[in-house]
Simulated scan of single mutants.
Amino acid sequence: MSATTEAGAAAPMLLRDDHANGVTVLTLNRPASRNSLSLQMLETLENALAAIAEDASVRCVVLAAAGPVFSAGHDLREINAHRADLDHGRGFYDRAMETCARVMQAITALPQPVVAAVQGVATAAGCQLVATCDLAVASDQARFCTPGVDIGLFCSTPAVALARAVPRKVAMEMLMLGDMVGAEEALRIGLVNRVVAPDQLMTVALELAGRIAARSALTVRMGKRGFYRQVDLPLADAYREAACVMADNLMAHDAVEGIGAFLAKRRPTWQDR
């Protein structure tokens, strides 16, 4: 297990635990700050994702959090402190929002799938983080909301991920009202994939990640990249993009192996090429 420590803090702010089956767990570790996404937390997460993207031994990622809260979103104390800057915080706010946007896009662009394991409340940019992950498993104690409107700060950047994860009118209701959404409702609207008992959260998340990791890494990476490339395209363009991905995939060794194994009724041996 490796860790990155926040400047001036005694405890590591981000934990990395690499499992033998190719699953890596990243754990937000600022429970005293409700795992808020300070600028340093965002930069640390960005660096961790960049390292994982280049690590062929990692086949799937589980994003978890320590303590009772998954993430409360941006660090409002940090944001408020920068009101004292000469520019009243504008430079810091631009940097923080740009960094947050890069982190979310890095998750989408990451070759490996990312599974969120949500044990508690995920609000604002914390909810954005869940919506951005490829899959999400939630404890039945988890809750979600985008409550910026309650403090005069509309959750405009969380809206980007939320609007791509749930129906538009559902997203607008969450953004306009800021109400908490329970785990079962989050499952119903498509924000999460599974709802489980709290003591089963990591077991189920790791089992799901392990099943993904057991597939051809090349196939999964091509599929994830192709999915996000086509998902917002017009229908005809989406089919052209997907057809190209399918044809490329069919030329890969693992497709030859997988189809051959299926026809021969044997288990395939993946070479990730």
Rank of each mutant, 00 (worst) to 15 (best):
K169D: 15
L162C: 11
A101H: 10
E241F: 00
I151G: 03
L162E: 11
D254Y: 04
G260I: 03
E185K: 14
L250R: 14
V130I: 12
Y239G: 00
D254M: 05
R77P: 00
A214Y: 09
A213W: 07
A10P: 00
N47W: 00
L208H: 11
A186N: 07
F92T: 07
R59S: 02
A51S: 06
Y239T: 01
L235A: 15
L162G: 12
M97R: 11
V114Y: 05
G178T: 06
A117C: 10
C155N: 15
R194A: 10
V62K: 03
A81S: 15
R34E: 11
M246N: 07
D150P: 00
V192P: 03
V220S: 10
F92H: 14
A66K: 08
S156M: 05
L42T: 09
A11T: 10
A65F: 04
E43G: 01
T132H: 08
Y228A: 11
Q230E: 13
Y228K: 09
Q119K: 12
A136G: 10
A197Y: 03
G73C: 04
C60R: 01
A125W: 12
V245L: 07
V195A: 13
L15A: 03
V195M: 11
V256L: 14
P268K: 04
A53L: 00
T5N: 04
V149L: 02
A125G: 00
R240E: 14
L110S: 15
D199A: 13
G190C: 00
A142S: 14
M222Y: 09
A131R: 08
A142K: 05
L28F: 13
Q112H: 04
L201V: 04
A109W: 02
I107V: 15
R225G: 12
V58Y: 01
A261D: 03
P111T: 13
L208A: 14
A20E: 15
V204F: 08
F262P: 01
G178F: 08
G91F: 00
G67S: 08
D85R: 03
A214F: 07
T5G: 02
D272S: 10
I107Q: 10
A84R: 13
L153D: 13
A264E: 13
A32G: 07
M251V: 02
R77I: 11
A48V: 03
A106C: 02
A122M: 04
Q112A: 15
L208F: 14
R77V: 12
E207M: 09
T99F: 06
V61T: 04
V114D: 05
D17W: 00
G120C: 08
A213L: 09
V195L: 08
M41V: 07
A138G: 10
